[in-house]
Write a protein that binds this DNA or RNA. Sequence first.
DNA 1: CCTAGCACTCTCCGGAGTAGACTGCTAACC
DNA 2: GGTTAGCAGTCTACTCCGGAGAGTGCTAGG
Lengths: 346, 346
Amino acid sequence: MDQPELGSRKVAVLRAVVEEYVRSGEPVGSETIAERSGLGVSAATIRNELAALEELGYLMHPHTSAGRIPTDTGYRKYVDTLPPGGRLRDAQRRAIAGFFAETMLDLEDVLKGTTQLLSRVTQYAGLAVPPSGSDEQILRTELIEVGNALMFLVIGQHGRVDKTIVDRPERLEPEGLAALDRKLADVFRGKNAAEAHTEALKSAAAAPAGERPLFLAAADTFANMQMGAGTHHVVVGGVANLADEAAHWRRETVRRLFEALEHESEMLVLLRDVTPDEDVNVTIGAEHPQTGEWEASLVSAPFRAGVTSLGTVGVVGPTAMDYVSVMASVRAVARRLSELATELDA
Amino acid sequence: MDQPELGSRKVAVLRAVVEEYVRSGEPVGSETIAERSGLGVSAATIRNELAALEELGYLMHPHTSAGRIPTDTGYRKYVDTLPPGGRLRDAQRRAIAGFFAETMLDLEDVLKGTTQLLSRVTQYAGLAVPPSGSDEQILRTELIEVGNALMFLVIGQHGRVDKTIVDRPERLEPEGLAALDRKLADVFRGKNAAEAHTEALKSAAAAPAGERPLFLAAADTFANMQMGAGTHHVVVGGVANLADEAAHWRRETVRRLFEALEHESEMLVLLRDVTPDEDVNVTIGAEHPQTGEWEASLVSAPFRAGVTSLGTVGVVGPTAMDYVSVMASVRAVARRLSELATELDA
DNA sequence: CCTAGCACTCTCCGGAGTAGACTGCTAACC
DNA sequence: GGTTAGCAGTCTACTCCGGAGAGTGCTAGG
């Protein structure tokens, strides 16, 4: 915030413009604000404030005789001057409480449900990044004969299961298989995923040629484990909301947004870029190249078990977003998720 | 086909209208057809044919002085009168061959890749339904202590892994756990998923109260296994293509389509409804209530290992779709997938 | 510093007029 | 009888006004 402090009336006017614009989608005129803001001043006074706010870069003018709409910087100022501790609407509170009242034990399922919950509650699209698993300890590994191939299975301390299928080495007796299974189990047990990955690569170099693919497959498995749960690294729900008329996005923008949502690593980087260590982050339009291209905003928050940060949940929607409600929802969901994860972890 | 046979020139004219309309998105006039169809007759003659085709319900007129566009019945007739054995374009052939040239051993990964392949090759959205797993045999089961809960893990004969996490029963000694693990393994080994499911429910009824949740969790796991791979029952790729301008869909239609794609069971039923035992099926617009609502078409084909049908792949796009190319692509992909699956199964 | 009033600007909307695209029909032709 | 050229008729799409309305910016007065 290198911007100067705004007078409190300017803040009120900016707030009125943002909220009215988000509600109606139409540029907002001075008259409307004078009527509804409850400031008790005339439209002419508001006009002066509007001109000043435009000068400061918080508002813009589609054309001379239209009302004002907020710029990205305007939304930012709006968010920054929001009174802390936004309120959930009753229906939202109930939906969130209801969701977390069900007993759920598998984090993957929970996250899928969470994205749907967020999208339903906010009317935008919900996102979730599962724990990275880098420091998930290996509880055990197994090498299993599956058809004419082998499957290497890793079970993590928190119940994550990852697997890779690999061609069966030639001339492998049943006893050889059992021996290999024990060998692998001994090597990896108790290590975390990152250590196990390094170890697997080292062992691959040292192993006889016949066993090498096996160790490489193991390395892949651990690498995958570090990335996130299963093969799905970013969970998305409620994307249909993004195609809604109300968002009045250009078709092409929607298309690009969908493309990015499908390209998981891109989203992963974006979320990692913007999500803070605690509480809620808001990224508005051009503040990040990615969201800028979509003319979208991203509200995200981390969740944790105890003190260790696990993953991220969030919401994507148009820059003209109901920030108050979305921030409250994301905060509430992240908090509940943290409680749940802490409990599971205990 | 209770429609009468069409004269061969009528077929040619219908084909020209469909192909030109799919290409340009504009209603097609008699002049255009006379020039490009290579029939060697004048526009006036074409006009007579067009009027006849409209009378038969294959074409329609947005308004008096516009060209013709095909009706759903028109597309159907077009597809039915297509010469068998459509050709792939070189680029498509290469993309498909390239994809299947990589060694891939895990069917889930393959299917995810397949949807992306199909969407890239056709410019519409790709779908895949994994094998149902009802008759996948249980290779082994394991009961593992994970944090303060238990995880029940099932490994199928083809390498599918399913798991459920369940609260730890109170007062369970380590020996008790080992005993339970053996007991469960004995009960389920060698059964197929459907049998195991029934068995689990039966055992749950008979088991002491403390063990009951465990058997119910096991039943859930098997139920899940019957549904499809992992928790994802329909794999979708390339949805961004559906938001493309070219499809000139109404926003609301796109929205409904996205909603349905996210609601997996709906898609599962649809695909099950329309996919034939072999070769390629085409469902056009109003031929199925679901596709009718989207003004979309669905091209699908089953893949199999040996003789048993495993799952389905397909493509969704606008009714004004390049059926020749899409059908050829879906057919080719289903065939390659069958070869791959048969090989994995051997 | 606020307000009322007013001239000014610019979009939006409807109507009129026109160009262009196709059709459908008729009459001649092979 | 099927085919063709020609032509009148129909309907959309586009453009070009002109007026209504919204909203601003400015000025002068409280």
